[in-house]
Amino acid sequence: MDKPATDIAHRLASHAEAVCRRYLSQGRREGRYWLVGDARNTPGRSLYVRLAASPDGRGAAGKWTDAATGEHGDLLDIIALSGGHDQLRDALDEARRFLSMPLPEPSADVPRPRLGKVPTGTPEAARRLFAASKPITGTIVEAYLRKRGLADLRGHDMLRFHPHCYYRPSEDDAAGTRAAWPAMIAAVTDGDGTMTGVHRTWLDPATFEKAPIATPRRAMGNLLGHGVRFGVAGEVMAAGEGIETMGSLRSIMPAMPMIAGLSSAHLAGILFPATLRRLYVARDDDPAGNAALGALTGRAMAAGIEVVPLSPLFGDFNEDLQLLGDARLCAAVREQLMSDDGNRYLVPPG
């Protein structure tokens, strides 16, 4: 970044909350962070902006990370991405207007440098990572899922295991954080089954839990409209945010096609199969989950698709599965399904 851009980024950081309220208006403040769906101001909680420097000095004000994609940057990037500015000069001019700074004199003979895109990883790189991974049977991924209550892992071929998946530490990670961990690799596909990306969940081999790192979940590739799919979509389908959430519903409805959008923002933007007539939305019990349900309902109704919300008793359906067990989860979900779908898809625990 050149000196004028660096200076302006520092000025923006000293007004971090005001910048977020202006350019990330769909988000909200929680403690020392501003939470929103993504850098383009989508509702949700995947992206977090640090509003003040961390007490230990590791994290600077104005720095942000999108936990769903691994994107990161500063507030000048936010202004560029939320405003659709692909030229650095345009983003700088907008930042100067926000800061009430004078605009520079125009110069016709100086070309405008383009802003570099924030790296997210290409679909090709995602496919290579998935190909380098192996089935989950007998691995830490299987142990992690079983610890989350997912006992029947048949039909989970979209999930694989990588023993040493690279992790790029962020400013929120402790000094000396390992750069590689075992990971669950989930294939993100479009409606035709073409892989467009992957989702990585780094795991701790000592505990069979998520790894003790700042962002143990990140995606790469092209996620918008796509997701991690369970089964082939037909007239009825269920959609939700997390892999574990949808795996929990899959444990009691193994024949119902499902998709995990991987974040509230991406759930709201999933593409509908041409055959879809009824969509069950497994919402997370939080404001981002409510926002995703509202956005998805509006899009589906406009497409002539019936939407039926599925609400967990606790935070999400994986939490329900772990706290209630299969039988009580099955009973709670049955009450929310259309009667024909309950008879067709629900398989009560034996």
Rank of each mutant, 00 (worst) to 15 (best):
I259H: 02
W64G: 02
L224I: 11
G31L: 02
L76N: 01
Y48N: 15
G121L: 02
L329D: 05
A67L: 08
P254I: 07
P104Y: 04
R217G: 04
E142A: 15
T189S: 12
G221E: 03
P123I: 00
G27M: 07
I185G: 01
G155P: 10
G176A: 01
G84Y: 06
L249Q: 09
M301G: 11
G234W: 09
G73Y: 13
L115T: 09
E30W: 15
I8T: 00
G294S: 07
P106I: 04
P113I: 09
M158S: 12
R200A: 05
M338G: 11
S133V: 09
L296G: 10
P102T: 11
I79W: 02
P216A: 06
A332C: 15
A233I: 01
A274V: 06
S170I: 02
M101R: 03
N343K: 09
Q26M: 08
A5G: 05
R229A: 01
V141D: 03
Y167A: 00
M1A: 08
I213K: 05
V347C: 10
G269L: 11
L329Y: 09
S100A: 10
D2H: 11
E209H: 14
A16C: 00
V308L: 13
P182N: 07
G149M: 05
H266Q: 15
Q322E: 01
L324I: 09
L103M: 05
G121D: 02
R28F: 09
E171T: 06
Q336V: 01
R146C: 03
E17M: 03
